[in-house]
Structures are given as C-alpha cells and as structure tokens.
Design a protein around this nucleic acid. Structure first.
Lengths: 137, 137
DNA sequence: AAAGATTGATGGATCAATCTTT
DNA sequence: AAAGATTGATCCATCAATCTTT
C-alpha cells in the first residue's frame, strides 16, 4: 500500500519555508505576527466576527484567539463588541487604525509570498509542489 | 496582477488541520511530538547526522534542534557523538530504543495522515488542495 | 448540561548572545 | 572572522480549568 507520506513531506517543507519568510517580513517591516495579519485580513471583510468564527478561519483554538485578539485590542487594531442577541458571544471589530495597518502590510505579504514561492520553485525538490499550489482551482 | 494569496490560504488551512491531527495522534498514542517523530525518521535513514543537517531537514533553526535533540537524548532515543574530523560538529545517532519507538509510531503517522487527508478532501474548499498534494511527482 | 469565551500553567520555536573550534 | 552548537529570555499556541450565558 502506498502512503501519502513522501508527498506530505514536500508540502510541509514548502509550508515551513514560505511561512517563515512571511512571518519575518511582517514582523520586521510592520511589527505584525502572521496570525495577527491574517486575523485583521479576516476581520476586514466580514463586518463583525465572533471569536469562534475567527478561530475556525485561522485554524486556531478558542484560547489562542482570545489571546490573539487581546494583543490586537491592546494595539488598538480591534475592538471587542458585546453581542446583544446572545450574550455569550463577543464580536471583534477592526478599527480604522487596524484597517490602516492591514493596508500597509498587504503589499508586503503578497510580494513576500510570491517571492518565497519563486525561490522555492528554484529548488528541484519543491518545484512540483509550488506549481501544484499555483494551479489550484 | 493576480496574487498567490487565495491559493496559499487553502494550503495553509490544509496544513494546519492535518498537522494538528498528526501531532495529537503521536502525542496521545506514543508520547512523541511531531518534530521528534520527524527527527527520528530522518535519523533512521542517514547513519549519523549533524545538528545543522537535521535543522535543514526539519526546517528548524539551530537553537530549536539543539533543544529537540536534548529532549530525544533525555528520553534515550538518540545519542550525541563527537565528530573527529571537525570538532566543532556533533553527530546525533539514533539508538535501538529510538528505532523501536519510531517503528511503533510509524503506522500511527501514516494512517492518521491518510485519514486526515481523506477528511479534508470531504470539505469542498479543500478537496482540490488534497488532490493536488496526492498527485505530486 | 452545553456553548462561548477567558485565564493559569506548560511546551515548543525563535532571537540574541555566547562558547568552542576552525 | 566564520561555522557549529548551546543557553537565557521571550513569544505564541495549546491544555485544562473556570466563568457566564443559554
């Protein structure tokens, strides 16, 4: 029986390299962590988002998101908003400042991503994985 | 200009879900972290491996690998071996015990991986990413 | 009891600084 | 000085436990 292991290994390797570069570029040039950037990005296109929704979007658990949003709140990039209809829930809303930071960081993200994929594509081991990603639906 | 972002997002999501399941299964059933498993796996098929080589294989930095190997050493799964020709270098060698733990964990890894990919393939958003991985070179 | 969220304790990865050998 | 490796401090994610609301 053949396993998925060798192919998965390629993907993990590609993921690590690219995410590493993305994280460093965002941190260095904008003082934003990768999860923070992605949270802002998610918040920017759904009006208001619940903690649990954000967790699903980012593939983090409740606890991680709670702390992530606390960091964003402290930085003034988001606000917590009580949910009237179900007072267990809490909405997180992006602030103007948050949108501004996101807009500043977005070109860095996109350019770093493309450059990192280009670089990976130059590695013979990873070239096929890169083109598989780039031809996704 | 089109960006790689939407496709990369799919891949990140797939990666997070699958790695999560792999990590939990290994931890719960074998008391091994994902990086520990992969380090053993790498060590099992190159006779002896230097710290820096291991770092490259695992996409971790020197510091992380140093601590990772310290954990494996403490658990008796590897040994450190001085490098005669260049005494800056240190070889890590897998022990019999390490091979045994690896052999025990391997079926869990492979089965969990395939099951996680199957599960992801059932999600319409991720189906195409799963088949892209599975048809890699 | 179950769902949504937060908090204390812990694990693992990283950075910056350090040490040894080349 | 540069390369290989280790160590202290810090960051981020997770687990388990807790609190509130349904």
């Amino acid at each position: 029986v053949s396993t998925d292991e060798p192919r998965w290994r390629l993907l993990v390797s590609l993921h690590a390299r690219v995410e590493n570069e993305l994280g460093k570029a965002l941190q260095r040039r904008h003082g934003l962590g990768l999860s923070e950037y992605r949270a802002l990005s998610r918040l920017a296109d759904g009006s208001s988002v619940r903690m649990q929704e954000l967790a699903d979007s980012l593939c983090l658990n409740q606890s991680s998101v709670s702390r992530l949003v606390a960091r964003l709140d402290d930085a003034g990039l988001t606000l917590r908003d009580l949910c009237e209809s179900d007072r267990r829930g809490i909405y997180t809303v992006i602030t103007d400042n948050g949108r501004k930071r996101l807009a500043e960081a977005q070109p860095t993200y996109d350019e770093t991503l493309s450059a990192a994929l280009d670089k990976a594509a130059a590695d013979p081991d990873l070239a096929s994985a890169v083109s598989a990603v780039r031809t996704l639906s």
